[in-house]
Design a binder for these strands. Structure first.
Lengths: 193, 193
DNA sequence: GACGATTGGAAACGATCGTTTCCCAACTGG
DNA sequence: CCAGTTGGGAAACGATCGTTTCCAATCGTC
């Protein structure tokens, strides 16, 4: 009941995230968010209750999309290991292409806010565990199929950590060939071929 | 001539860096820096000309120490590859130990400021090149000695990227066994044995 | 069609931001 | 011992920060 919203909440969250992403959370003022979303300052505070809350919401949204993307990519591939390789291709695309919002939003927040915002850190830690477990399951399958050697949990950890590193480099202007060289070296070292 | 300084500039830069490091650059006010260094606000501006300038100075200082540490560690080891392994041990120590200032200052700045501060990005890019070249030279030696297989430049890139990833995880509370598992998996996959 | 509820937005809040100004203290060269 | 130069710090600068308040506009409900 009462007056309906004139804006699409999902779209507002998207735009707020892009603003945080491009220039950092601390450097993004409420006025910046107002410009980015089209909502007035008062409306932002009416809909979301604070800057921190909106920030956490944008992160939650982003992490959920990331988890769904990994699951979808794995499901669409002929084998889990092929799915993992396809997923890594997508990550290279995302890290390299989306200038000036280079890199990964989760990495930006991990570096800038995880040390000072418990809610953000908790979201990131939980997300890491989900991604790592999913990757580990795919690696376990690949080890069983003889395509990869080594401890599956360790390999999953290496893959996830290397991805994080790529996203850091992306903030500094990493190019596609450089990203590809890193991933190819990692896969080459892990695969039994 | 004239009145001499009452403070040690190197120590002030150190303390300023720790303040930036712990809570992020944007979230660290000049008042915070005054508290951390013991200098008054006016004195800070007299000695360094702005917050950005002081930030760049702390980074320059940090990067130089990091480069020297890598060179020293390599020089002290019996072989370049052993030196690289010792260096990775030190990195694990640094990433895991220095709570609450976890992780690497360079990674914090890469994530928070590289996208918006050209001076910071330039410093980081140059530093990356120095570290990567040094690592690549050590890897090349190890490949020649038959201890490592693969393209030396790619391997160096993988090592540096994985380290960056570890530092991101460190911001989220990475433990020593987890860091060790990642590094051991990487080394195990790279080494020929 | 009046009412309660909710939205959108302009304006204002005190607080704090990065920076500058001003004045005195401390030192050197003559 | 005086003139000149630099360092240290209190105070104040305008601007902007995140947040709240207030009011008109708009809906469902009676």
């Amino acid at each position: 009941m009462a007056r309906p919203r004139e804006f699409d909440e999902a779209e507002v969250v998207d735009r707020a995230r892009n603003a945080f992403w491009a220039q950092g959370v601390a450097a993004t003022s409420i006025a910046d968010l107002s410009d980015a979303t089209g909502l007035s300052v008062g409306s932002i505070y009416k809909a979301f209750k604070s800057k921190d809350q909106l920030c956490a919401l944008t992160l939650e949204d982003y992490l959920q999309q990331a988890q769904e993307h990994l699951a979808d990519t794995l499901a669409a591939a002929p084998t889990p290991w092929d799915g993992l390789r396809a997923w890594l291709e997508d990550i290279i695309d995302q890290a390299v292409d989306t200038s000036p919002t280079r890199g990964c939003y989760a990495v930006e927040l991990a570096a800038e806010r995880a040390a000072v915002d418990d809610r953000v850190r908790s979201l990131l830690v939980d997300h890491d565990a989900v991604i790592r477990d999913t990757v580990a399951a795919a690696v376990r399958d690949a080890v069983g199929a003889g395509r990869v050697s080594g401890d599956a949990d360790g390999v999953a950890r290496l893959i996830c950590t290397t991805i994080n590193g790529l996203q850091v480099d992306a903030r500094k202007g990493l190019t596609r060939p450089e990203a590809r060289a890193t991933i190819d070296t990692m896969l080459g070292a892990l695969q039994t071929d």
